[in-house]
Design a protein around this nucleic acid. Structure first.
Length: 462
RNA sequence: GGCUCCAUCAUCUAAUGGUUAGGAUUCAAGGUUUUCAUCCUUGCCAUAGGGGUUCGAAUCCCCUUGGAGUCACCA
């Protein structure tokens, strides 16, 4: 059984990069009928981890992702970590170090001055004398002093580290007794049965340390997949300053979960030439071995395209439901279908769609200056008046086609082009020269509103 | 700086050692549309550089260059 996990530190919200590794982990677990565990890494607990967990769960919920079992909080597992630290102490695989922070800094400075690597010198590694007074010791693990550590990574291949380049007897418990990151990650992953770790490749250099812990405790090392970073347009690691990095911002912006997930799954992963993936397809086709080796740059153009694609292909009742979040209640509108059909392939996002609908539903408050200049010349007012008169005496104006007939009639009888009536009418109805079909607009707002808008436009612009 | 990773169009990416280096987004042009958008068609655009290995290299090896990540009693 494949057991994966997503293990964010509680920084407040779900990050777009985190979401991608979470998605990869989720897909791989679910595809294999396994489990996907959510673990909050709050050993330092300077922040409100509950809030962070809630934010992450909320985001997962929006996206339709779910984790198995209860959320694990590291802050609630302190007893477990203490027990394993004690075990290492008892078996001589870890030891107390009485070096003070000052001494440590001193050592580091000396090493820096000599251009050596800053590392612990192991002075308490085999210490069995009387400990110095007044120093609360940290616990250090006995790391190997020489040799190589090979991380067998499913994406990068075998990555070899020379122990003397990267390791020292690192701290596994602070002076206050709390355990440190590399220790708890290894302990938790092992204890929770996580056999497949999919995470950002910024963790690759931590992996040897975690392997030392696995080794010391006799745990089995999981399969690692270190996923390349997502970069900003500058080519640097994505940070808060790069626009929207909070997943929930995308909801506010009007992106749908399918679009966002589809966008993210294709960042660093591909399946031939396929661009559009439903959740089922992702699950069916995803395999971490197909993840790219190189970092990718985050670019919203494609997200916009996907977003538009999903809106275009969404059933109207679902679209209507989603639009309510953006303040639009259409359920009782008798021309809902016509309206949504006409606008769904013009919108990039739900927010955008709501705006476009708003432009149809409410009369223009301002008329675009250029549009007026272009459309309201010569006999535009006269033609509009003629058109209004025809509307007034027409019966049974309901569907777009009904309005279209009236336009056609006018155009034919006067021997003019469609543009002659179309342009000024468009300005009258929408205040500008772009937008959905005029017959659709008139059908949606009805005859009375149409007449009112024509009237208002003539008064304002002639 | 040490260590590690990475390198195909502007961007996301495809290509058992043999392809006119493919697709998608963006951009541009044309068609459709009374307008705009959608949609359709077409076009522009890439194997970082240098050495090898090989009949043959985007693909394997080495070097250079460039980029990224990481080096805590943070996670």
């Amino acid at each position: 059984m494949v057991v994966t996990r997503f293990a964010p530190s509680p920084t407040g919200y779900l990050h777009i990069g985190g979401l991608r590794t979470a998605l990869f982990s989720y897909l791989w677990a679910k595809k294999n009928g396994g489990k996907f565990i959510l673990r909050i890494e709050d050993t330092d607990q300077n922040r409100n981890s509950q809030e962070a967990a809630d934010a992450i769960v909320e985001a997962f919920k929006w996206l339709g992702l779910s984790h198995d079992g209860e959320i694990e909080y590291q802050s609630r597992r302190m007893d477990i970590y203490k027990r394993y630290i004690q075990k290492l102490l008892d078996t001589g695989k870890a030891y107390h170090c009485y070096m003070s922070k000052e001494e440590l800094n001193e050592l580091r400075e000396e090493q820096m001055a000599k251009k050596e690597r800053a590392m612990y010198d192991g002075r308490y590694r085999d210490f069995n004398g009387t400990p110095p007074e007044g120093v609360e010791p940290v616990v250090r693990i006995k790391a190997p002093l020489e040799g190589k550590i090979v991380v067998e990574d499913g994406i990068k291949g075998d990555v070899t580290f020379d122990v003397k380049d990267i390791l020292d007897d690192f701290i596994i418990a602070r002076a206050d007794g709390t355990p440190t990151y590399n220790f708890v990650v290894a302990v938790d992953d092992a204890l929770m049965g996580i056999n497949t770790v999919i995470r950002g490749d910024d963790h690759l250099s931590n992996t040897p340390k975690q392997m030392v812990v696995y080794e010391a405790l006799g745990f089995e090392i999981p399969k690692f997949y270190h996923v390349p970073m997502i970069h900003n347009s500058e080519g640097k690691k994505l940070s808060k300053r790069d626009g929207a990095t909070d997943v929930m911002e995308y909801k506010e912006l009007g992106y749908t979960p399918e679009a966002l997930l589809n966008f993210l799954v294709r960042l660093g992963w591909s399946h031939g030439d396929q661009e559009i993936f439903s959740m089922d397809e992702m699950m069916d086709m995803f395999d971490p071995k197909d993840i790219n080796r190189s970092a990718s740059i985050y670019n919203v153009d494609k997200l916009d395209w996907l977003s538009a694609h999903y809106i275009k292909n969404m059933p109207n009742n679902k679209l209507s439901d989603l639009l309510e979040y953006f303040g639009l209640v259409l359920s009782s509108h008798d021309k809902r279908e016509i309206l949504l059909d006409a606008l769904k392939d013009r919108a990039k996002t739900l927010q955008n769609m709501a705006d476009l609908i708003g432009e149809v539903l409410s009369a223009p408050v301002i008329y675009d200056e250029k549009a007026v200049k272009k459309a309201f010349k010569d006999d535009a007012s006269e033609i509009l008046n003629d058109f209004a008169a025809r509307l007034k005496k027409s019966e049974n104006l309901h569907l777009p086609v009904d309005y279209h007939h009236v336009m056609e009639e006018l155009v034919n009888e006067k021997g003019i082009g469609f543009g002659k009536i179309g342009q000024p009418l468009r300005v009258a109805l929408l205040g500008k020269l772009s937008g959905p079909g005029l017959d659709v607009v008139m059908s949606v707002i009805g005859r009375d509103d149409t007449l009112a808008r024509i009237d208002a436009a003539i008064k304002a612009n002639s």
